[in-house]
Design a protein around this nucleic acid. Structure first.
Lengths: 290, 290
DNA sequence: CCGTATTACGCTAGCCGTAATGATG
DNA sequence: CATCATTACGGCTAGCGTAATACGG
C-alpha cells in the first residue's frame, strides 16, 4: 500500500469522481484509475461499485477511505512533529514568572549558546511554565521556588538552581504622604493611585490581590511608564533589579516593602533528564547570585 | 514520504543498524542507506547522527520513528478493517438470546440468502447482543422484547419484528411427585434435581435464579441429555419448540409452567439504517409467528 | 579482517502521460 | 456529444542490486 494510493483514495472519497481527483492532484485520469485498481487488488477486497462509466465507493470502500484519511493525517503529524522539534532545537526558549530574571538570563544564554536564537515568555502563574517544561517547549523555566518532584524510583525529575533575588520598593516623590517612612507594607498602599507596568509576571497578581482598593494605572510601554513616573507625582514600583534596565531614581525616594511575597528568590529549573545539556548554563547561573 | 521509507525508518529504530534492517526486510544495505538519506532530505531535518561507519537516530529521529511506527500500525488497521468487513459481508451472522429462535431463523436465512454462510451466537444476556448489532458484528439479533430507541431527530434506530413464542414445561415421569399436577410454577420445583442443558441462553439465568435450592445436573451434549432424560426418572424441561429438533415426550408428561418469565415472545431486531437490506427477511419472519 | 555505511553504476520495474475506446445520460 | 472510466502503448523516473570504497573495533 503505497502513499500515493492512500492519497488518491482519500481524495476520491472527497471528490467522488476520478476526473475531479485527477484535476485536484494534478495527475491524469488514467493514472488514478490504475492506482485504484491496484489498491483494490492489493487489498483483495472489492471496495468499488463500478458501472461502465461510473465508479463509486461501496460500504467497505468508505471504511477504507476513512482509514486512508487517518493515515494521511498521521503523515502530516509526523512532518509537523519533526519540523517543530527541529525549530525548537535551533532556538533556546525559556519561560519566566517575572521580567527581571528573564532580562538577567538572556545575556547569559546568549554568551553560552553563541549564534542560537533566544526566545522567552512571561507568565503570571506557574502552571503553564511547568507544562511548557514538560512538553519541551521551554528548555528551562524561572519560578519562585524549586521543583522537588520525584519519579517512581525516587530520582528527582528536575534540577533547581537558585538564581537572583528581587526586592520590591515603592518609588515616591519627597512630598508624598508616605515619603517619610523608612519601610512599609503593601496594605499601607490601600487606596493609592499606582502606576504599574502590566507585563510583570507574578507581580501583577500580587499587587492586585494584596493592596486593598488601589487604583492601578496600567502602562504597557516601559519607556513611557518611566517618563510618566518622573514627570508626575504618582508613586510607582522599583526593585533592586530596576537599575539593570536603566531606570534611575531621579528626585524620588525608594521605600522598601517588607511583605515576604515581594522579596523573592528566583529558581532556574530544567528537566533532570537534560542535566548534561544544561550543566554549563546552571553553572553560569550559580555565579550571578547576589 | 513513501511507505517504504516509513517502513525502513521504523525497522531502523527497532534494529539499530542498516545491515540488520536490510536483512530483516530482504533488501540490500545500499537501498536502506539511500532511503534514509532521501527521507532526511524530504523532511528537511537532520534525524541521524552519522560517523563514517555508524548511523544513529538522534532525538528528533526517535520522534520521527515513533510516528513512523504509528503510521504503519494505521496501515495494518486499514488492512484489517477492510478484510474483516469483507469477511462479515460474506457471512450472515446473527445473535440470539435463546436456542429455539436460533434454530428457527437459520433455515429462513438459508433459503433467503442462498449460498451465503450463516453463523449464529447464543448469549445469556442482551448487552453483548445489542453491542454486536451496533458494531455490525450481528446483522440481526433475537431478544425478548422490541428495541424502541430513537435518534436525536426522533426516528427509530431499530426495526423490531415479533418472531416465535416459546412456553416452558416440565417433563416428568408418571411416578414423579408433581406428575398429577395440571400446571405449576417455578417455585414449586424448589429442591428438585433437574437435568438441563447449559447452552440455553436466557433460560439458564431464569432457572438458576427463580428455582430455590434446586440441584442442576448440567449437560452440554443435547443427544446425551435426551438419552439420560428418557432412561432416568429425573425431570427435565421441554417447550413448544422442542419437537422441532426431534425431542419426543416418550413415556413422560409435560406439565406447563405458568410464570411469565418462561412464556416468552421473541423479537427479531435489525438496525433501521439497514431496513432495506433485511426487509425480505423480516417479512419472512412475520409469516412464521405462531 | 569482519562488520558497517556510503558512493558509483547500470538495470528495470512500475508509474506516468497521451491517445484511443467504450459507455452513459 | 460532453463526461466519465478503462485499456493500450511507449517513455522515463526512481528505486534496486552488484560492486567498489572507506572507516573502525
Amino acid at each position: 500500500m503505497e502513499t500515493y494510493m492512500i492519497e488518491q483514495l482519500a481524495a476520491l472519497a472527497e471528490h467522488k469522481t476520478l476526473s475531479k481527483v485527477a484535476e485536484v492532484l494534478h495527475i491524469s485520469q488514467p493514472a488514478i484509475s490504475r492506482s485504484m485498481q491496484k489498491l483494490e487488488e492489493e487489498l483483495g477486497v472489492k471496495i468499488f461499485e463500478r458501472t461502465k462509466n461510473r465508479i463509486v465507493l461501496n460500504e467497505i470502500g468508505e471504511i477504507a477511505a476513512k482509514h486512508a484519511q487517518h493515515i494521511l493525517s498521521a503523515h502530516r503529524d509526523m512532518l509537523y512533529a519533526v519540523r517543530e522539534s527541529d525549530r525548537r532545537r535551533k532556538i533556546f526558549t525559556f519561560g519566566a514568572i517575572a521580567p527581571a530574571p528573564m532580562w538577567e538570563l538572556t545575556p547569559i544564554i546568549s554568551q553560552l549558546y553563541l549564534g542560537m536564537g533566544i526566545h522567552s515568555e512571561l507568565h503570571e502563574t506557574e502552571t503553564e511554565l511547568i507544562q511548557g517544561l514538560e512538553n519541551d517547549v521551554y528548555r528551562v523555566i524561572i519560578l519562585l521556588h524549586p521543583l522537588e518532584d520525584k519519579d517512581s524510583t525516587g530520582n528527582p525529575l528536575y534540577i533547581s538552581t537558585p538564581f537572583i533575588q528581587e526586592n520590591l520598593a515603592l518609588l515616591v516623590s519627597k512630598t508624598h504622604r508616605l515619603a517619610r517612612k523608612k519601610s512599609l507594607f503593601l496594605k499601607d498602599l490601600a487606596g493609592e493611585k499606582l502606576l504599574i507596568h502590566n507585563k510583570i509576571g507574578f507581580w501583577y497578581q500580587v499587587c492586585k490581590t494584596k493592596i486593598p482598593n488601589a487604583l492601578f494605572l496600567e502602562q504597557n510601554d516601559l519607556a513611557a511608564l518611566s517618563e510618566i513616573a518622573n514627570a508626575s507625582a504618582l508613586p510607582t514600583f522599583v526593585t533592586n533589579m530596576s537599575d539593570r534596565i536603566g531606570i534611575q531614581p531621579s528626585e524620588k525616594l525608594a521605600i522598601p516593602i517588607l511583605d515576604k511575597e515581594v522579596n523573592v528568590q528566583f529558581w532556574c529549573i530544567c528537566k533532570a533528564s537534560k542535566k548534561k545539556d544544561y550543566a554549563a548554563l546552571l553553572n553560569a547561573i550559580a555565579l550571578v547570585q547576589r
